[in-house]
Write a protein that binds this DNA or RNA. Structure first.
Length: 430
DNA sequence: AAACAGACCAACCGCAACTAT
DNA sequence: GATAGTTGCGGTTGGTCTGTT
């Protein structure tokens, strides 16, 4: 079901009755507005009292007036709209209304799976730069993307799932690893301090976070590569709880072995399933039906995902000069060997996992120029709308890369595979 | 049927950058 | 260079709808 704004209704096709009603209303509104404008002009002439501008939802007639104005005068000079048309709206409001609802070629409705994946990729690259993200999604507005993202992250946060799909996490780690070197610091504390000093903000994952993601992802690859364990959980009220249960299982697994989960992770009462029960199904998946649409079966993509993720992981390891050794028996995580500095003897057994993590963290060091690279996301908080796409890697390229590496479509909403909540990226919604 | 919680979305607000004078 | 006006962006809020209890 889709709700329509008055503006959308104006542009969308509708019945003749509705059209008539609308045109009549528009005409009436025009006259009323003209009269109001005249009266307002008189009042301004007399007393120069600022007219009280209207707030709240736009009416059809207001939309018609705005559309008419833009048709005559073009976009821009929004403050003149009120003066020229008598619309009792401020220029800001007019611009917003036009941009988000009235301008042509707006794409209404649910985001497609491709769009959702692209949004995730763009967010991983840009952070909360909605306008720049919108530039990559024709017909979509920054507001729309922002609303989608906030809703989606909120939902996934409640479910204890990571914000980004695994392929995006890995791609992110991969791209950042090229900025990392591993000979300057020797411990996690130093990493944290360095990342902080380097100006990493919550809108973009610091290399340390990425290292943790990588560590978790490494385990995830193995998990995905293994045959699905027999599902023996109690009967779920959810018809399609099985894939979710697997994800939840991995979440527990990864959360147990990863330090990236925030202590404030909001566990919904009764666990993730209970936390999801009230979640409205994503609109994009509405046609899928049932809870399966919220967390659709991931199995069909598992082999592909595992394969592509493993490939990307290998690439990542290469990039940071880490040798992935054969999996430690029963440990889940590959034992990493530091090539730099002579390496060390291979360890086996779960008791060494923390050491391995530390080793990995040691290798994911932010370079001094990392902030400069990351500065495409302006840490000052200012926007850089006039330097659009100047330095940042192309999101399209990223998408292509992902496809080339066999990344599965994000139509799978079950991004809950590594169990590492991206808290560094979620501060805005916490 | 009513109450409630959550999702969705439109719109507003404050701030910063840009432009014109 | 200073100032005012304009534009754009991101965060936030509030209303409406929907599903659940």
């Amino acid at each position: 079901m889709e709700r329509r704004s008055p503006g959308a209704a104006l542009l969308a096709s509708s019945s003749p009755e509705e059209e008539e009603e609308k045109s009549a209303a528009a005409e009436e509104g025009r006259h009323a507005a003209m009269a109001a404008a005249e009266q307002q002009q008189e009042e301004e002439d007399e007393a120069a009292v600022p007219v009280a501008l209207k707030k709240g939802p736009w009416t059809t007639s207001e939309d018609a007036m705005l559309v008419d104005h833009v048709r005559r005068h073009g976009e821009g000079n929004w403050n003149a709209v009120q003066r020229l048309t008598g619309l009792l709206r401020c220029g800001k409001s007019c611009r917003l209304r036009w941009t988000n609802h009235l301008r042509p070629n707006l794409k209404k409705g649910s985001f497609s799976p491709d769009e959702e994946l692209l949004i995730a990729q763009l967010h991983a690259q840009l952070g909360n730069k909605w306008a720049r993200m919108a530039a990559h999604l024709p017909g979509r507005t920054d507001n729309e993307i922002k609303n989608y993202w906030n809703t989606m992250t909120k939902r996934r946060q409640r479910a204890g799932l990571p914000v980004y799909p695994p392929e995006v996490q890995l791609q992110l780690a991969l791209s950042n690893s090229k900025r990392c070197r591993f000979d300057e610091f020797s411990n996690v504390q130093a990493l944290d301090a360095a990342a902080s000093a380097a100006g990493y903000t919550s809108s973009r994952p610091a290399p340390l976070d990425l290292a943790r993601q990588l560590a978790a992802t490494s385990q995830m690859v193995q998990f995905l590569s293994s045959p699905p364990p027999a599902f023996s959980a109690p009967a779920s009220p959810w018809p399609a709880a099985r894939p979710f249960a697997r994800n939840a299982q991995f979440f527990q697994f990864a959360a147990h072995h990863s330090s990236a989960v925030s202590p404030s992770t909001p566990d919904a009462p009764g666990g993730p399933v209970a936390g999801l029960r009230r979640c409205r199904r994503p609109r994009a998946a509405a046609a899928g039906g049932g809870a399966a649409a919220l967390l659709p079966d991931h199995h069909q993509h598992q082999n592909l995902n595992a394969e592509s993720l493993e490939k990307m992981l290998q690439e990542l390891h290469d990039a940071i000069k880490v040798d992935p050794s054969p999996a430690a028996s029963g440990g889940g995580g590959g034992v990493l060997e530091r090539r730099h500095g002579g390496g060390g003897e291979n360890k086996s057994g779960g008791q060494h996992r923390d050491d391995d993590m530390d080793t990995l963290f040691d290798m994911m060091i932010p370079t001094l120029n990392a902030p400069a690279a990351a500065a495409t996301t302006n840490h000052s908080g200012s926007t850089s709308q006039h330097s659009n796409d100047d330095q940042e890697p192309s999101a399209v390229d990223l998408a292509v890369d992902l496809q080339a590496t066999g990344g599965a479509s994000s139509s799978a909403q079950d991004w809950g595979l590594d169990g590492v909540c991206q808290w560094s990226n979620m501060s805005r919604i916490c």
